[in-house]
Design a protein around this nucleic acid. Structure first.
Lengths: 320, 320
DNA sequence: TTATATATACTCTATTTGAGTATATATGTA
DNA sequence: TACATATATACTCAAATAGAGTATATATAA
């Protein structure tokens, strides 16, 4: 690479394409044989071919994954030096625009080296559905305590302590499922995620239990995507982009839980969803089931025309 | 311009720098003598000089406005063809990353051709503090009705009708102060804002009462900034970035109202702010006033360490 | 028939919101 | 000085919402 390359800015478009099946939120990843790590589908933005950033993304994703994106929204633009190269300092500067896309999982993937992967493989500390993830007590808390101890001065240590408490819900503080990005960034700064070593960070430690690493800054983009989706669900009916045309209320709830990573109160969830006019019954019932058959519902698209911002502001955690 | 330019992508950084004084929200603009229109401070991103996008922005803004930015957050990256050129089709493709920055207004501006301008000059329909803005009934509703009538088919007309109702709170629908961008985009598509003519849109109409136009897509960035700030205020204590070290609760309320563009219920605002632990009394009282002197408060920075997402989720509109 | 699993309806309380009233303390003026 | 007026602050009250249940209905599996 010549130094002229370092003058250049290329715009990369990356997409976190999400779907949920069987109570498992998945993201579409491409296996990169050279580096061995997973990557989000990405490609360059071509100003000649593409009228908008989003249309560029759709085109690229279509070519690469044979998927037709439905819902897509821009997340954030990342341009930090040192967090994109394979090896620090090489190659032209890349500014990457991250997108979140939602899709119903449909049949086999036609693209090679492409697979749906449970997003909790990359963020094992984010799934609180069955219980508080063991990795938090076992690995994260000790690692962050070391990070605090390594602080150059007391104010810095104090700041790190606070971030740890607020991010991971320690000292009786509530777990905030939306802080996915903050948590990842804290772990990155603490030097314990795999990307740190690759980026040549000074305090990088050899670590294993902190989730699978990804190419470039793709794990950061994915963290941003999860944060955004967990938040947006509450005031926009985006979950329905992930549901089949008809579904039972429990299936809907399980999807919401899969995304948010927390369990909800069933009766109140039903009250909320029906009370908001988000769904309507079809009269038919679901076939396969153990107990009493559940009614099949469909999304009431009309809510979008009736109320300014309908969503599932999920409160009521836990309990039967 | 050669066609080679059209292959190039340049990254521009633009900032909506906001401050509030005397119950008036202002944005820092640069008067461009050539085009005659206002612009946000903007400049190119240089990958060699700048480690991150944000540090690039801070550097640029410092040089251009002599201001030291405090709070800054990235808004969105715009890259649409045809919405950035002075004249359609000319010049290299520019992808612009918009930022929101907050600052206390401090003394005189040292930079030439730079001034603070009331943001409602650009969006006169957004200020509902005294009453529903007349421009909505007088100019916007008729213009949008024409836009609906011009629809090529009935489904399109129906869509436009719904957008009009939801955006501008017609038919008894509530006014949603956060939909600033949606409203601007609707007016843009309807061809009635000044930028449409400049961009050479087919349905552009000569119009006047729809706010001052801005250079490039800067008015779109500003709309995004206002939307974001109006929303963020509710779950993060960002208003305090705009307040002096001590202030009365009414001053705080007036600032929030200036930003959101709606009036709030005084007693409930006080209950909320104090109940959330966002402020603490100083014991001192404000000097200048008409009636009973008000206590001076200061922001309790500690809330950031105590609770996950403290903000002013303003409910209670209107009334004394 | 019974145990079990799921669906759905309904209840009850605590908290939060929206909208007031009541009272305190200042200024300006008849 | 007394009073009208303006602002600050305390307190009240009802409606709506949220959190956590209980109760009952309807299916399957043993």
């Amino acid at each position: 690479m010549t130094s002229a390359d370092q003058h250049t800015v290329a715009i990369g478009l990356s997409a976190a394409i999400v779907s949920v099946t069987e109570e498992q939120p998945s993201v579409l990843v491409v296996r990169h044989s050279e580096s061995g790590s997973d990557a989000l589908p990405f490609g360059p933005f071509d100003p000649l071919q593409h009228r908008t950033l989003e249309s560029g993304l759709r085109k690229w994703v279509g070519e690469q994954t044979y998927l037709d994106l439905g819902y897509a929204e821009q997340l954030y633009t990342f341009g930090d030096r040192g967090r994109h190269e394979m090896k620090s300092g090489e190659g032209p500067r890349i500014v990457s625009v991250g997108y979140l896309a939602l899709t119903r999982q449909c049949g086999e993937l036609k693209a090679p080296d492409t697979l749906w992967r449970d997003w909790y493989r990359y963020f094992p500390w984010e799934d609180w559905r069955s219980e508080k993830p063991a990795v938090i007590g076992d690995a994260i808390a000790p690692a962050l305590k070391a990070f605090i101890k390594d602080a150059p001065d007391e104010p810095t240590a104090e700041l790190r302590r606070d971030r740890m408490r607020l991010c991971f819900g320690l000292d009786g503080l509530a777990w905030d499922e939306e802080k996915v990005l903050e948590r990842y960034e804290l772990l990155y700064e603490a030097g314990v995620v795999l990307e740190c070593a690759r980026d040549g960070r000074p305090n990088a430690k050899p670590t294993l239990p902190f989730g699978i690493g990804m190419l470039f800054d793709h794990r950061r983009i994915l963290a941003t995507a999860i944060s955004r989706l967990r938040g947006k669900m509450k005031y926009r009916p985006v979950v329905f982009e992930l549901m089949p045309p008809t579904f039972t209320l429990l299936e809907l709830q399980r999807t919401v839980e899969a995304i948010s990573g927390v369990r909800l109160h069933k009766q109140n969830f039903r009250r909320l969803v029906e009370g908001q006019g988000l769904v309507e019954g079809t009269g038919k019932v679901s076939a396969l089931s153990r107990g009493r058959p559940a009614e099949l519902f469909r999304f009431r698209r009309e809510v979008l025309r009736e109320r300014p911002s309908p969503g599932l502001r999920l409160g009521a955690r836990r309990a039967g």
